[in-house]
Design a protein around this nucleic acid. Structure first.
Length: 764
DNA sequence: GGCCGGGGCATTTTT
DNA sequence: TGCCCCGGCC
């Protein structure tokens, strides 16, 4: 197919069809590694090129990272100023924006707070306490997830009571008051001017349901709606999208039912499977060519996933090299498993010039990381663990943000509770308890009581009263300043006036200094944010603006380590959407993977999909390990190998056991242009064969940049063309991910370093 | 208000 | 086995 748009030529036939089709609802069923993001990116770029205004395009993703990456990729085609006008973001952030704008009609303040998971949990705990329920029976985590599920299914407390099955189930589970907790929880959020994550979707639905004129407004604003990872949408998300599209029907969704792994969070694969029922006229596009992995990996993964029923039929295939088989290794113990992994990584790293950044170890549960970390540390292998405590979860940052929250919305109860006696100012639990009771009795917020304790007859002595008035005055003073001072100055003022500065900056211990650094980092973030707002909108950012920015940011957004040459450790869940040259999957055992918690067929299929996701992360090599003994909750268990191993066609597996010492096995090519096979001893560290004729690359492992000879299909020496710079030759390639760069000697303008993530290059 | 120790518990977690 | 939470004590 020939078009005037150069980037279209980079797509295969199926991808092109999906991008160019403009006849109505489209469902793109995209197999693992089949270029789903690429299709979505070019679809949007193409719409813009065809004259659709970027601000008429709504594109929804599940993570901030995905949204950011897609935006920059589109920007590389259309220009960043154009891409910036897109309505592109996570479901939560986009509808947060809309809800803030429309807050009034649903009786919420414009500057409403967002309760994160720990705020909700803490609120639920205090409700359980107030209702004098047994917190062993009414466990906050369980209650929280039930409430969340109800919200994701758009079930209000009133509706909940009408669902006989649910009420009956609660009675049987000895938690008949669940619906009452839910009711109070909702009332308390409302009283605090707060929404939790689920509310952002639920309230949007309520807004659209009850206010047709507002729904109409957004219907006509969003001429096109595109959704990524559609298999992960829950009912609330699905309904929002359906409402927005049911008239113009310009909806384009992309997903892979085989990669649906978040049903425990309410994701419903049926939203995708039933797309055809909602849009009978829809076109379904299947992307079946996998560009990521070797044939063996794709074939192995296919044989596994075909054991599931109820998938959309598709045949994923790879035209890459055949590659080595998936290696399965048995360890005596969980400890030895870690050492086997470490030793294999070390060998593959050394022999294949494969940088550590090209390795990931995946596991089912976070608890498994410890032993693997120990082994990597012993072997001096640099690693990083995903899913640790994120910056915004740290105590000192949460304290600071809590002050911000109170200044922006003093009715925010969770934030008030956090700061009212921190730093200590003599307002202890007893007083807070009295304030809470008074608030509940009068159905007003904590702040209403704190700011007029006498009016509500708060029963406290004169000394405490003075302390309370001091606190109240401090907050009022800060509130008076909040719209006058720009965010960075406001932050500085809060830090001083609250006493946080004195509290944290007197500490000379290692932890104390780390806290100070974190606070300094937060202040820096505010300053940078402020500068950006000034540049974009020409006004000073307020504290409220900053809160909007941070309340939906989570971990993994600011990982300085991201591009260092380190092995990545993470759960199989976190690995979705990522890819690595070499994947290790650890703990492939019954009761672990599949999880012991999976007992229904449905859950078992989800576990299998999770395994499928894990395998398909691998570009070149995949190694699966399992142990014959393992410490589990302080007890030694002797697990048998996972049933999923038997689901994979044995033709694609290479079982290596201790006994087969002489059968050296290959873990496939580390690098395409090199000798086909690397050989590893089945014994832990000793290598039997020296690889023949393996050309060593200069590798600056551990340094900032790592030289490479091919990245995403672009090789050293390739002739490439760039829209603006013309044609040239690739003279150097280095780095990973967003840091991946190419130095290109252009015929006309000479050498240029291009960030591959942004540059659109075509081979010529 | 902070520290210590016992008891209970223990998937996955884009926002 | 470790971690977290709570309650008791100083």
């Amino acid at each position: 197919m020939n078009t005037e748009y150069g980037y279209i030529d980079q797509l295969n036939e199926q991808q092109q069809e999906a991008v160019l089709y403009d006849g109505g609802p489209s469902l793109v069923v995209a197999g693992a590694g089949s270029g789903k993001t690429r299709v979505l990116t070019y679809k949007i770029a193409y719409l813009i090129d065809r004259g659709v205004k970027p601000y008429h395009i709504l594109a929804l993703t599940f993570t901030n990272k995905a949204a950011r990456e897609m935006k920059s990729r589109i920007g590389a085609v259309t220009g960043d100023d154009v891409a910036a006008q897109l309505w592109m973001g996570t479901f939560h952030s986009i509808f947060y924006r809309i809800l803030r704008y429309e807050a009034e009609v649903i009786s919420y303040p414009h500057d409403f707070t967002i309760y994160d998971a720990s705020d909700s949990k803490s609120l639920i705990k205090s409700i359980i306490k107030e209702m004098q329920l047994d917190d062993k029976v009414y466990r906050a985590t369980m209650i929280q997830s039930r409430i969340s599920n109800a919200k994701n299914a758009l079930v209000t407390p009133e509706a909940y009571e009408g669902i006989k099955d649910w009420m009956e189930a609660d009675r049987k589970a000895k938690i008949p008051f669940l619906v009452e907790i839910y009711r109070r929880y909702r009332a308390r959020c409302y009283r605090a001017g707060a929404m939790d994550f689920d509310d952002l979707l639920m309230q949007t639905n309520i807004l659209f349901r009850d206010h047709t004129e507002i729904l109409d407004k957004y219907r006509s604003r969003f001429h096109y709606v595109l959704v990524d990872e559609y298999q992960d949408t829950n009912f609330a998300q699905h309904l929002i999208v359906t409402r927005l599209c049911e008239q113009h029907r310009r909806i384009f969704v992309v997903g892979d039912d085989a990669q649906s792994i978040y049903s425990f969070r309410g994701a419903n694969i049926d939203n995708m499977l039933r797309f055809k029922e909602i849009y009978p006229e829809c076109r379904i596009f299947k992307l079946e060519q996998n560009y990521r992995s070797t044939q063996n990996i794709v074939d192995a993964a296919n044989s596994l996933i075909h054991k599931n029923k109820g998938q959309i039929h598709k045949t994923v295939f790879s035209r890459n090299e055949a590659g080595g088989k998936i290696v399965v290794r048995t360890a005596y113990s969980d400890i030895e498993e870690g050492h086997i992994i470490a030793a294999m990584i070390k060998d593959m790293h050394r022999e294949g010039d494969s940088p550590y950044a090209g390795f990931a170890v995946l596991y089912r549960t976070n608890a498994q990381s410890r032993l693997i970390e120990d082994a990597l540390r012993t072997s001096n292998i640099a690693y990083r663990v995903y899913g640790g405590q994120s910056f915004y979860q740290r105590k000192e940052i949460k304290d600071l943000i809590a002050y911000f929250r109170v200044v922006v919305n003093p009715h925010d109860e969770e934030a008030v509770k956090r700061i009212i006696n921190f730093p200590a100012r003599g307002i202890g639990d007893t007083t807070v308890g009295k304030i809470l009771s008074a608030a509940t009795a009068n159905d007003v917020s904590l702040w209403d009581i704190i700011s007029s304790p006498k009016k509500y007859g708060l029963p406290i002595n004169a000394g405490t009263m003075n302390k309370l008035l001091d606190f109240s005055r401090m907050i009022t003073d800060l509130i008076d300043e909040k719209d006058r001072l720009p965010a960075p100055e406001m932050a500085e003022l809060i830090l001083t006036r609250s006493g946080l500065k004195a509290e944290y900056f007197g500490d000379r211990t290692v932890e104390g200094i780390s806290r100070q650094e974190n606070i300094a980092e937060a202040l820096k973030a505010i300053t940078e944010f402020s500068a950006r707002i000034m540049e974009e909108r020409g006004v000073d950012a307020t504290l409220a603006d900053f809160l909007v920015e941070v309340s939906l940011i989570t971990d993994q957004d600011n990982d300085a380590d991201e591009f260092a040459d380190k092995v990545t450790l993470m759960t199989a869940h976190s690995a979705k959407g990522l890819e690595f040259d070499n994947i290790f999957i650890a703990g492939m055992e019954e009761n672990l993977f599949p999880s012991i918690m999976a007992d229904t067929e449905r859950e078992m299929e989800e576990e299998r999909r999770l395994f499928y996701v894990a395998i398909t992360r691998a570009r070149k090599n995949c190694v699966i390990t399992h142990a014959n003994s393992r410490f589990h909750h302080g007890q030694m268990v002797f697990p048998s190998p996972s049933r999923f191993l038997e689901d994979i066609d044995p033709d694609f597996l290479d079982y290596i056991s201790k006994k087969s010492d002489n059968q050296a096995f290959n873990t496939a090519e580390i690098n395409r242009q090199r000798e086909p096979y690397q050989r590893y001893s089945p014994q832990i560290t000793r290598r039997i064969d020296e690889p023949q004729g393996l050309k060593k690359l200069e590798s600056t492992v551990g340094k900032e940049t790592v030289k490479r000879d091919s990245i995403d299909g672009i090789c050293l020496g390739d002739r490439v063309a760039h829209k603006m710079f013309g044609e040239g030759e690739v003279v150097s390639l280095e780095g990973y991910g967003a840091e991946a760069r190419a130095i290109i000697e252009f015929d006309n303008i000479g050498k240029k370093t291009l960030i591959l993530r942004y540059a659109v290059l075509t081979k010529c």
